Amino acid sequence: MLEPNSTIEQALKWARRKLTEHQISDDGMYDSAAIDSKVLLCGCLECEQIYLHTWPEKQLTIEQINTFHHMLEKRILGYPVAYIVGFRDFWSLRLTVSEATLIPRPETELLVELALDLSFDDSIRVLDLGTGTGAIALALASENKQWSVIGIDKNSEAVKLATLNATKNQLPDVEFIQSDWFSSIEKQKFDLIVSNPPYIEINDHHLTQGDVRFEPSSALTSGNNGLDDIRFIIVNSVNYLNHKGWLLLEHGNEQGGIVANLFTLNGFSNVRTECDLNGQPRVSMGQLNGLNS
């Protein structure tokens, strides 16, 4: 237990030690025990991390110590940090999260970067399939205010959450609609379709490990080989893309070759797969060649 009148510095050292003892850490690339400690304490104090570094000798109140203890206990049980503090930073945005949606991952920022690197006119129509918190849609809209961006999700709670995030991040023009993939947007055409769909096999052993244990399985799994939703999106997107429109999909690190082949088989050209910062194949993309548009 933290002693009464413990300082910010002492609280961080104690939390890091406790998380390390319980092996709440990644496999070497990051000191996630230290990172988690800082994020949790910021959530407790309702401050930014610079405050922790600026005022390390500031003493915590008994109420703050008790709250921090409660947060740490939940993290030791494996509960995701984002769910504990109620938000996750993604791109330049702070997004409210809930157990109704997948927690945005840093790897997904690659999809945003690739979309922004494409050559488009100033004003295009963008569709984000399975938007969840609205992370991808809002990140793209934040960089291109003139783009018309729609995010869809079959989960009504996700739609409400994404709309809330749009308001909080001052991006009210982004539209969020409840839709089971393309079902509610028939006859509409887009210049860019993006998605981080479910792509994990139903029986994958990773589903019993780490943060994903607490996340909705409907946002994670997709059939026996993890490709059901990806295949559906690629096959059907040709009916919703304009001439020379682009489709970008995030996928598992062992699915790049299969996904790229699905792009080619369904009339896409300029097909390529890009790796994330860990060197893992993460996003495949292709441009509709116009024969089906």
Results as ranks from 00 to 15, higher is better:
136 I>C: 09
137 A>T: 00
137 A>H: 03
137 A>I: 11
138 L>R: 06
138 L>E: 04
138 L>I: 04
139 A>Q: 13
140 L>K: 01
140 L>I: 09
142 S>T: 10
143 E>M: 14
144 N>A: 05
146 Q>G: 09
146 Q>P: 00
147 W>M: 02
149 V>W: 06
151 G>P: 08
152 I>F: 06
152 I>T: 04
153 D>N: 08
153 D>G: 08
154 K>C: 12
155 N>D: 15
155 N>H: 11
156 S>I: 15
157 E>I: 04
157 E>K: 10
158 A>L: 07
158 A>I: 02
159 V>P: 00
159 V>W: 07
160 K>H: 11
160 K>M: 11
161 L>V: 07
163 T>L: 05
165 N>I: 09
166 A>R: 12
168 K>R: 14
168 K>A: 15
168 K>D: 14
169 N>H: 00
170 Q>E: 14
171 L>H: 06
173 D>V: 00
173 D>C: 02
174 V>W: 12
174 V>H: 11
177 I>F: 01
181 W>M: 02
182 F>Q: 02
183 S>W: 09
184 S>V: 00
184 S>F: 06
186 E>Q: 11
187 K>L: 02
187 K>P: 03
188 Q>Y: 10
188 Q>W: 07
191 D>E: 13
193 I>G: 02
194 V>M: 03
195 S>E: 08
197 P>R: 10
198 P>S: 14
198 P>A: 08
200 I>Q: 07
200 I>N: 07
201 E>D: 12
201 E>W: 01
202 I>P: 00
204 D>M: 10
205 H>Q: 14
205 H>P: 14
206 H>Y: 09
207 L>F: 13
207 L>K: 09
208 T>D: 13
210 G>W: 07
211 D>T: 05
211 D>I: 02
214 F>H: 14
214 F>Q: 14
217 S>K: 15
217 S>V: 13
218 S>D: 03
218 S>A: 04
218 S>N: 05
219 A>F: 03
219 A>N: 03
220 L>I: 14
222 S>Y: 10
224 N>H: 14
225 N>I: 12
226 G>L: 00
226 G>E: 00
227 L>A: 09
227 L>S: 06
227 L>W: 08
230 I>G: 00
231 R>A: 15
231 R>N: 13
235 V>P: 00
236 N>P: 13
237 S>V: 06
237 S>F: 04
238 V>G: 04
239 N>F: 14
241 L>C: 05
241 L>D: 03
243 H>Q: 12
243 H>K: 15
244 K>W: 10
245 G>Y: 05
247 L>Y: 01
247 L>S: 04
250 E>M: 09
251 H>A: 07
252 G>E: 02
252 G>A: 10
253 N>W: 15
254 E>M: 09
257 G>V: 13
257 G>T: 12
258 I>Q: 09
258 I>A: 08
259 V>T: 04
260 A>C: 11
